[in-house]
């Protein structure tokens, strides 16, 4: 029997636009609706994909789940903790990775692992085992004492992955995890996502790449203009069509033009 580990309940988020932003976006409105009454659930051990174009509200949704942004209304229960009232518990139960989150370039992977393990209150004996396991899995040992500034983009991405799951979280949230990566590092990331699912972790993944969702996700939610327009298994959502065709049909149904 499946267990709901993430429950998003009627989540809303608006951003106030400055005069300059209004001008840039040709918007007469002072307020932009980023996430509009969003609800969905994710089950333990499931990989859930949030699919949508740029500006659909994927990143805002994930940032709210990671408690970096506070919702205007609604709530989400993440592994039993509310993002509104128990943000610290939520943060201790999730791993969050986005290309916008950076690591201090003056530190080494060894230092950063220990630093984030301390912030996550990982006990010393567990930390040592976990470091060995993850550093071996991602081949980090050979550059463990090299400053981040001197690492390649691929090495940095591997390290970011490791840092995001240093505390062995129940839910892992990835925002556009393969953005800007070369094909080899992108494959390392997708293999890692599969590993996480195999370990029984719940993975929430935002992307605009159809093939990634089709190859990895158990269920998908299509987000357009901040609203969830379709959510379910790939079969339920696509109903015999390709994911790409389904997405564009829904996109045009919402009054958008290509």
């Amino acid at each position: 029997m499946s267990e709901t580990i993430l429950e998003v309940q009627d989540l809303c988020k608006h951003f106030r636009l400055s005069a300059r932003q209004q001008k840039l976006t040709h918007s007469p409105d002072r307020v932009k609706k980023a996430v509009d009454h969003l609800s969905f659930t994710a089950q333990r051990g499931e990989m859930f994909g949030l699919l949508g174009p740029n500006g659909a509200g994927k990143t805002t949704t994930l940032r709210m789940l990671a408690t970096l942004l506070e919702p205007d209304s609604g709530d989400a229960i993440v592994a039993g903790a509310s993002i509104r009232t128990q943000p610290e518990q939520v943060r201790s139960r999730i791993g969050f990775l986005t290309s916008e989150l950076k690591l201090e370039e003056c530190f080494t992977p060894n230092f950063l692992f220990d630093f984030f393990a301390d912030l996550h209150q990982v006990p010393d004996q567990i930390r040592a085992r976990r470091k060995e396991e993850l550093f071996t899995r991602f081949d980090i040992h050979k550059f463990a004492e090299v400053k981040v500034a001197n690492l390649s983009t691929g090495m940095k991405q591997k390290l970011s992955l490791v840092i995001s799951i240093v505390h062995d979280p129940e839910i892992v949230i990835f925002d556009e995890p393969t953005n800007g990566l070369d094909v080899i590092t992108a494959r390392v990331v997708t293999n890692f996502l599969k590993d996480l699912r195999a370990q029984g972790k719940t993975v929430i993944l935002s992307t605009h790449i159809f093939s990634l969702v089709e190859s990895l996700c158990d269920r998908v939610g299509i987000l357009i203009d901040g609203a969830m327009v379709r959510c379910g298994t790939l079969e339920d959502v696509c109903q015999g069509r390709t994911l790409e065709d389904t997405f564009f049909a829904l996109y045009e149904e919402r009054g958008n033009t290509l």
Binding site: L68, E88, L101, K102, E104, E105, L119, H120
Partner: peptide, 17 residues
């Protein structure tokens, strides 16, 4: 500097108070 480099956000998603 940490805001500019995005490294403070990495700390803000940890449970640190």
């Amino acid at each position: 500097g940490e805001k500019e480099r995005g490294t403070i956000a990495t700390m803000l998603i940890t449970p640190v108070k």
